[in-house]
Write a protein that binds this DNA or RNA. Structure first.
Lengths: 190, 190, 190, 190
DNA sequence: GATGAATGAGCGTTCATTCAT
DNA sequence: GATGAATGAACGCTCATTCAT
């Protein structure tokens, strides 16, 4: 008797996640180009061939990892989903951002690793921009509303500060004065 | 008439530089892993074999590029070399930093590309920290002297902000509001 | 109400034929090696696994297709089954041959594709020769009876001409001057 | 001291030929798709990688084999290169054709193997048509000049006859009544 | 010093086949 | 009978590196 559709979906979903999690951890640790399909397969305890039942190739695997994580990220942004940022939401975002990096350390490490490597990043840039645009717009609207002189500059600056802090946190989380820095950033926007 | 020892050394040094510059430009454009030794050799107009007279391998070439550029970087830092930062020096540093990135764009692009890839960066991180430490100390001393509550936090924050801005500038220099951002950063420390 | 043995056999035979027809069409269009079991199965609307209930493997499937088609071919040959060829039968055969190719285009395309590939053709060559021998004998008898000097030569020549024409017809049926060629061949034996 | 240009050319030409001859023999024996690069390399006594110093891939290797052989073929056609076929030249061509097949058996076996396999033949079809067109034109002109009613039909027929004979000769050269057949064909055009 | 032919380990990927369900 | 997840050997190909000249 063949498996039921439900059983198959369960198996497929489990394996899909297993492969993606295994690959993400390896990509984060060694970098996309330094991880071979063989390594992923053997780390996940499956055959090389099985990978290709779930993903059309190494690039596709990366894309799926990134887009899944983005989905998770965007879902946890703009708390009340009204597209408008209030001051307390911005302050809360600053707190959340570092928690998010902490909770998805591998992903964010991979993400920032890719950010400057065109050959890898182009795979993913579109999803990145789709995700980023609403955030940028919200920030600009917020800064405009709050009376800042140059909202675009403020949005760019804010994003760059968060990137810089994220990267430094990722490089050496043990020595990063996390709470102090959170306070510092929040003090700029209080 | 055979060349003198000195002339030979000069020729050697020229070739060495030629290879490094060629490789740096290619690495920055396509990424380290997407540039083959063959490409570097043919771009530089030399044979593959000759590369190995100057560098022990592809990794070695990368290391030499990074560490040479650091040397150049540190030599052009700390304006009056007294180890003490004045406010006007800090403000000037902010200006200079972006100029430096602009003038050595390929290097800084490559550098930030490598920043999160332990396997490669490990090799140069020590030189990087050696170079960074006096700056950190100067910064901390300055912030302390200027009455900041948490000098360490301020130094980390400042460095991270500069990293974040550098990265965003490198990703898309055409759309980066350079002058506005310089002003913004300086305004924080005026 | 369970199906009778006969009904089951009928279903089995239908599936078998479905698979063979699907595969033949794909083999003819893309070539044996460019068609995967997955493609055949999905084209036929069955699972990969089921294929192996009907055929022991891809090679076996090919063999069965070829030998089944031969069976069909031989059954529709030698019009009055008396083993003797009359001139009008030979002339009719020439007409029929092209109709036969037209009606079973996929098969003959596949067949001629395989003709020169020993590793595959070996398998069916015996059946092919069994089928061909009576024809050869009839031809030789006919040519002998008709006063040709070298009946063997004539039989070989006739068969080769028909092969050559068949192949050229198959390569580009749209541009093949079919009726003209039929006339030409028949004129040689009128 | 590096090798002279001449030495390098010699080495290159030798290896190129070695690889092509080895590959042709294997392709003819087992078919293009059944021969791996590894097999060719090990048959030729070289490494896999070296193949790619001489040919850009397996397809390119095939193309070069075919086009080199075509070159050889066309050079030995139309004896006095005046683009006009005389009766004695046609009769001589018939003799030569079988000699040519005999002398380049592997090539012609490979060629006819490919003729019906679109996926392989398309690699080579252009060169084939370039080579064939002048021949077709010469034939048509000849048949027209000689008072045949339908020159196009005659050219198609002639080419098909030669194909059919070639294929049958290639399948089983030992049992092919070569001289008798040559006479037969020539008698049609005397 | 300088060359480039030569190597071979390793890559991403395919696919006929197996087998638990 | 029927399914499709799973396997693994083999493929075409790349490229850092070596070394005879």
């Amino acid at each position: 008797m063949p498996r039921t559709e439900e059983q198959l979906n369960e198996i497929r979903e489990e394996k899909r996640l297993l492969i993606m999690e295994t690959a993400l951890a390896l990509f984060a640790k060694h970098g996309f180009h330094h991880v071979s399909i063989s390594q992923i397969a053997s780390s996940a305890g499956i055959s090389k061939g099985l990978m290709y039942n779930y993903f059309s190739g190494k690039k596709d695997l990366l894309e799926k990892i990134i887009s899944d994580s983005f989905k998770h990220f965007t879902e946890n942004f703009d708390p009340n989903h009204d597209g408008v940022l209030e001051k307390h939401e911005l302050l809360q975002f600053i707190d959340n951002a570092f928690d998010m990096i902490h909770d998805n350390f591998d992903f964010w490490k991979l993400f920032y690793t890719m950010l400057l490597r065109p050959s890898v990043f182009e795979i993913v840039i579109q999803k990145y921009e789709e995700m980023l645009e609403p955030l940028y717009k919200m920030l600009m609207t917020y800064f405009e509303k709050s009376g800042y002189e140059k909202p675009h500059r403020e949005a760019v600056f804010f994003a760059a500060v968060m990137d810089g802090l994220a990267i430094n946190y990722i490089i050496d989380p043990g020595h990063f004065p996390l709470e102090d820095i959170k306070e510092k950033v929040k003090s700029l926007y209080r």
